[in-house]
Nucleic acid binder design. Structure first.
Lengths: 210, 210
DNA sequence: GGGGGAAGACTGACCAGTCAGTCTCAAGGG
DNA sequence: CCCTTGAGACTGACTGGTCAGTCTTCCCCC
């Protein structure tokens, strides 16, 4: 909308303030969790004002949701690209794990919000959480099913396997977020990938990848 | 403590009220989560009074903690017994998964509190959470290490494997808690056990157990 | 009649969200 | 050119509701 006034006009300013608010919100939420965070914390951290916050967002809850949605969208996109680029189960799992782990590592605050701090109560929160997970599950399940069809791995409950994988990766990253171990997180890439592959019945042949 | 006055005196009464409060708290917390739950909800649900609640507990937070601690203690105990009773990795994994899954199934409310609603923020909550997980990890890690020593499974990062397993089981139960699938939850027992075993390199030989 | 246990009205801090107003800047008019 | 107007962006003091925790009172058993 109205990109005509961009030159030196309104829009850039608008986006800048909104961005500052979201960035500060990520920081504050990841530090204190949703309920212990106070809108005035975000106001202070962002160097704006309460009015500005409520100019851009309807509610504290909506700030949180926007944060999660925008982050989830980028992760989903990265993941899709990484998986499409890879051929074969091994490469796809490697790509998935690496993408997720690297992304969480690069966006610690957002990772903490999504993996640890996410408020459980409230239908909105809960619904979004389930939806996001389902989306992830679909990606994993897709290539697991293909591997089954190709006879690469035995037939099995691929949906359950996908949930198991998500739980596994989530737990490993959550541990890193709250204890700092292992440092760097990337150490887990190889063993975790091996573990996941072997869980669905793909024995780890030392030089299988690529 | 003070079992001397039990006959027909105070203690039973005392315990009864306290128990009612805790039971109602479990219900309320699992429904709304910690922060959206209001102490008056617990008062109403328990049919007691605010005075009674604050007679037995110092704070809302402490009610929550007591709930989690008492539940965790019983789960830990059951788990310890189940594992000690089993010989060999397969039987131990079976026992662990079955114990956890059955327990969560039998105490849906508490399971939801522990697995889904546990408030992330706040050092107190967080610390206890990490400690409980570490305890669980120790049990799993213990028998994984023994299996490695016995040459049953290849050498590997058993601590990471333990976290992966916990994440996996947690995720499966969490899915059941929020979506109701699968019904009954026990359907996952066999495939989940197989998955976990094979993840650490123990190929599922159809008649391996017992 | 004394004391432990329970009731529930009450208090005060806290905080999400509002609103009346200010500031900035662009456009139109003289 | 300068002045007015108006609209959009932003400010921050304020409000109204909420809720954890307290306090007084009462009851019941000894």
């Amino acid at each position: 909308m109205a990109t005509a006034i961009d030159r030196v006009g309104r829009l850039p300013q608008r986006e800048e303030t909104r961005r500052k608010i979201l960035a500060s919100a990520a920081q504050v939420f990841s530090e204190k969790g949703f309920y212990r965070s106070v809108v005035d914390d975000i106001v202070k951290a962002s160097g704006t004002s309460k009015g500005a916050v409520y100019f851009y967002f309807d509610s504290k809850e909506q700030i949180f949701m926007s944060l999660v949605e925008e982050y989830a969208a980028t992760v989903a996109q990265e993941l899709q690209i990484a998986v499409q680029r890879s051929r074969g189960l091994v490469a796809q799992v490697e790509a998935t794990v690496a993408t997720l782990v690297r992304n969480f590592q690069a966006h610690r605050e957002l990772a903490k919000i999504v993996l640890v701090d996410w408020p459980a109560a409230g239908a909105d929160f809960q619904g979004k959480r389930i939806a996001l997970k389902a989306m992830l599950v679909e990606v994993l399940r897709g290539y697991l099913d293909r591997a089954v069809q190709d006879g690469k791995i035995p037939a099995q409950d691929t949906e359950m396997a996908a949930y198991v994988w998500i739980g596994a990766v989530g737990e490993i990253v959550a541990r890193w977020l709250s204890t700092g171990k292992p440092n760097p997180l990337e150490e887990v890439l190889a063993p975790l990938t091996r573990l996941l592959l072997s869980s669905v019945g793909l024995a780890a042949s030392p030089a299988a990848a690529r």
